[in-house]
């Protein structure tokens, strides 16, 4: 068995953006039959190759719209690539980002159980870990409040707390540390360190280069959907900061 927990082989992701506005089925049919319906192809990612070994921490950097989140979604299995192959050998914690994978109508408590179930954990398992999840997120008072009433920092804290509680092999973090306050960020780092020591693989998207330097050993720099640089954290972060 190979040591690579994630293998991304020559992956291209292409979205069709519908160019012409149409107001209904009738227009759609008319335009399609006249050949007027044009799709504007947008390549979110082009020919990405990436091998991630078990236990590594990778940072993914690049400007807005460079394809970072798309890459994470491909790895999570949320999108299917247009071309190429992706292999993941391990479980993935829910992709956490702002306004995470929660049902806004449900309370924090219900969302914890729902998210646990998404990862294949039973109600009993989640019950046993419930107190710890809520305590880490510092949301004891708000366990029965619907998520829609939470502040963005609270949502982010809950998301991080759930994702790191369940013992997934791969932890994917998309711009989440930016919302928490300094104290909570410090707590997150500590917990991530601990998880990494236990062999969890981490993928981190961040615009904060200091964060990336702090956590990751390797970095992928994306630019307009293409790989600009890949390798050790120091070199790449330095050149990224110098543009």
């Amino acid at each position: 068995m190979t040591n690579n927990i994630i293998e991304v082989q020559n992956v291209t992701m292409c979205f069709n953006l519908v160019q012409e506005q149409f107001s209904g089925l009738k227009d759609l049919v008319i335009m399609a039959s006249r050949g007027k319906l044009k799709f504007n192809k947008f390549f979110a990612l082009k020919n990405i190759d990436l091998q991630i070994k078990r236990g590594e921490a990778w940072g993914i950097i690049g400007r807005n719209g460079s394809g970072k989140s798309t890459l994470l979604k491909l790895i999570s299995g949320i999108y299917a690539p247009t071309k190429g192959k992706i292999k993941v050998r391990g479980s993935i914690a829910p992709l956490i980002e702002l306004g995470a994978g929660f049902d806004m109508e449900l309370t924090a408590r219900e969302n914890i159980f729902l998210n646990g179930a998404v990862l294949g954990y039973s109600r009993e398992f989640m019950k046993n870990n419930f107190a710890e999840i809520v305590a880490f997120a510092e949301l004891e008072q708000f366990a029965d409040v619907p998520i829609k009433n939470f502040s963005s920092g609270m949502v982010a804290r809950l998301g991080f707390s759930i994702a790191t509680m369940v013992k997934a092999d791969i932890l994917i973090i998309d711009e989440i540390l930016a919302v928490g306050d300094a104290v909570f960020q410090e707590k997150c780092y500590k917990r991530m360190r601990k998880m990494m020591d236990n062999g969890t693989t981490v993928l981190l998207v961040s615009h904060n280069i200091a964060d990336v330097k702090k956590i990751c050993q390797k970095v992928l720099w994306l630019d307009h959907g293409q790989m600009k640089m890949i390798g050790d954290v120091q070199n790449i972060c330095n050149s990224y900061e110098n543009i």
Partner: peptide, 9 residues
């Protein structure tokens, strides 16, 4: 959609 967009299910 909210769930499907965040995690593979």
């Amino acid at each position: 959609a909210a769930l499907l967009k965040k995690v593979y299910v």
